[in-house]
Nucleic acid binder design. Structure first.
Lengths: 236, 236
DNA sequence: TCCATCATTCGGCCTTGAGCGAAGTATCAA
DNA sequence: TTGATACTTCGCTCAAGGCCGAATGATGGA
């Protein structure tokens, strides 16, 4: 009957510091074992286990058993989106902006399955400016605009060898803004955002750091970003 | 340093049902007095007052005094955004209905318009094992993989008289995993899943129970599952 | 001025749930 | 089979915080 009770439930699930740490750690979209998450949560493994059960029962996480390991993962991009919007809000309401973000993490990181950080924000701006993407006008209630890949954009992506139609059958939103918690503006999310990150990792424009969401821009990536997108990376 | 502590704080603020109701009521952007919000929260005014103080201190609400009234309002659109994303998430995860499944219901039931339960999960596994279906590679983040019906699968289905191309024009996903809430793994959903259930009901492999999603495996069905799919049903 | 109304503060009660460690279960490796 | 490792379950303690009613400030109207 109540639209707000589910909200309270979801919020309660995220309200415990230990659970918040777990969820944040999972935001890179990877799966972690219960023990790894117990370390992240900084609790006894029994406590962490209870937390994980709760999150899984609620449907925020999925659990996969492999041998004697249980891998936990965010159940849906929507979970990551809630967390991102909270991070954004945290920035908005803190007069003292916690600049404690390590610099590299602000520059480039993975946000669930797409690129985030300064460079991602700049990239979206550039694509809009180049006319590769145009916003599809959204209802007022929509918080994040959808974008359409223009003919120009299609040509551009095809030119660099990015198969922008891969998985086009998916019911996932194709291209949409995703609020960046360190930059406070949108970067590119959705199917296209995921394809882009895949592409850039495969081409080694970025390297993935172990055990972190941080992405390292390679020299090749720097050149390519400039050459293909006229995006000049000055200093990290 | 901790990027997750603010999240826990914000989430905790929204985690109390009374506060969630208040926040939802404020989502229209208008300002309400403390008494109005006490009614919404369904608590004593003293209790509501405490909630409002907490929300205001955290920075989620702003308070304006006019005469003897205090008007409360969302402090920032970012607050509404968090709530919106939570509502969206609530819709996404609402499929989870855990606990105490009556045994027959776990064995075979209909999930919308396709087969679910233990037998459906086993069937999907078998089809994958037989090479009738192959996963179309999806990102790790996608929770429900799509499947492609192989030539082998087409032959197999044609052999038993299942018209796997019926309604192929539909925009619906053709074959995809559907998370089984009693089994916690995927069974076959999508257009093909629906065709399959239709087929099996028509051939009386299963009988539909009135007023329930439960499906009853017939003796014929048991034989056919074994014969056509090498699927051995041991005991319910 | 005096009273009714709006709002907050205070004190006491009570539920919720987070925490740990130990014991139990499942899986792997030798 | 026998550890060793990975998780979960159980029993228990304890602190946090939600709830109410009564008392106390404010404000506006008669």
């Amino acid at each position: 009957m109540d639209v707000d009770q589910p909200i309270a439930q979801i919020a309660a699930a995220m309200a415990e510091p230990a659970r918040a740490r777990i969820l944040c750690a999972l935001m890179d979209g990877r799966a972690y074992t219960a023990t790894e998450l117990a370390v992240v949560a900084d609790t006894a493994s029994s406590t962490a286990s209870a937390h994980l059960s709760k999150l899984t029962e609620l449907g925020l996480l999925t659990k996969v058993s492999q041998g004697r390991h249980r891998y936990f993962q965010l159940a849906d991009p929507a979970v990551a989106q809630v967390l991102e919007s909270m991070m954004h809000l945290a920035g908005v309401i803190n007069r003292v902006i916690p600049v404690s973000t390590p610099q590299p993490l602000r520059f480039a990181r993975s946000c669930y399955d797409h690129l985030a950080g300064t460079v991602a924000v700049a990239l979206l701006q550039k694509w809009l400016q180049l006319g590769w993407l145009t916003p599809i006008k959204a209802e007022a209630s929509e918080q994040q605009p959808d974008y359409q890949l223009t003919a120009l954009g299609q040509a551009g992506l095809a030119a660099i060898g990015l198969d922008y139609l891969a998985k086009a059958h998916s019911r996932r939103r194709y291209a949409c803004g995703c609020l960046d918690w360190s930059e406070r503006t949108a970067h590119l999310g959705g199917q296209l955002g995921a394809l882009l990150l895949d592409f850039m990792l495969q081409k080694q424009w970025f390297n993935r750091q172990l055990d972190s969401r941080e992405l390292q821009l390679t020299a090749l990536g720097r050149r390519q970003l400039q050459q293909q997108f006229q995006l000049i990376i000055t200093a990290e």
